[in-house]
């Protein structure tokens, strides 16, 4: 009997100690935010969305290589000699046309591994987190600003230059060969004459 009463008393007491804690919390200011109306400020450097300043990209593909999930796809075309693509804001010369720079944010795991390798600091995380989509394809962000026509033009030009280079190389090789043959024949002649 005494035991039961004691037990009841401790139960009663501990419940009301707990209630006291709850009461104290009730009088404190609320910690929750009413989300769509109120928003918490993200700290600087929060990782929520990738962004690329395409003007600063030099097409080195270091970010593509650093990505563990392969969500970055870059294609580049070498610029022909007659075009000067200028320099990035960090002073690196640009030598490639960036024909494709796609980031698939549905694959991205926000690990931030692509950001430190970038030599021109053109790829970075921006504090934007409300970009849900109904269609997964809309999460493929294309950063290349070249139009399709421009891409084919650039590609053709680059190919032509490449061909030209090859041709010149071949020609040079042929010339060299011819020269060599010439020299050897001359030497032979000399020998025979001697």
């Amino acid at each position: 009997m005494v035991q039961t009463l004691k037990k009841s008393w401790t139960t009663f007491k501990t419940i009301f100690t707990g209630m006291g804690v709850t009461m104290r919390h009730l009088l404190q200011p609320s910690v929750t935010l009413r989300y769509p109306e109120e928003r918490d400020e993200l700290p600087s450097g929060a990782r929520s969305k990738l962004f690329v300043h395409i003007d600063d990209c030099i097409g080195c593909k270091l970010c593509e290589r650093a990505c563990p999930v392969n969500c970055i796809a870059i294609e580049t075309v070498q610029a022909t000699k007659d075009v000067d693509l200028g320099k990035t804001s960090t002073g690196n010369p640009k030598r490639f046309w960036i024909t494709t720079f796609n980031i698939d944010m549905s694959k991205c795991m926000y690990c931030d591994m692509c950001v430190p390798p970038c030599p021109t600091e053109c790829i970075s995380m921006v504090p934007e987190y409300e970009y849900s989509e109904y269609d997964r394809n809309n999460l493929l962000f294309q950063f290349s600003e070249l139009s399709a026509d421009k891409v084919t033009e650039v590609k053709e030009k680059a190919e032509k230059e490449q061909e030209e280079k090859q041709r010149k190389k071949k020609e040079a090789a042929r010339k060299k060969k011819a020269q060599k043959a010439d020299q050897t024949s001359k030497a032979k002649q000399k020998n025979s004459e001697g």
Partner: peptide, 12 residues
């Protein structure tokens, strides 16, 4: 301490 009041020593 608050947690102890709420859980640790709670009879239930």
């Amino acid at each position: 301490k608050e947690l102890n009041d709420l859980l640790t020593t709670n009879s239930i």
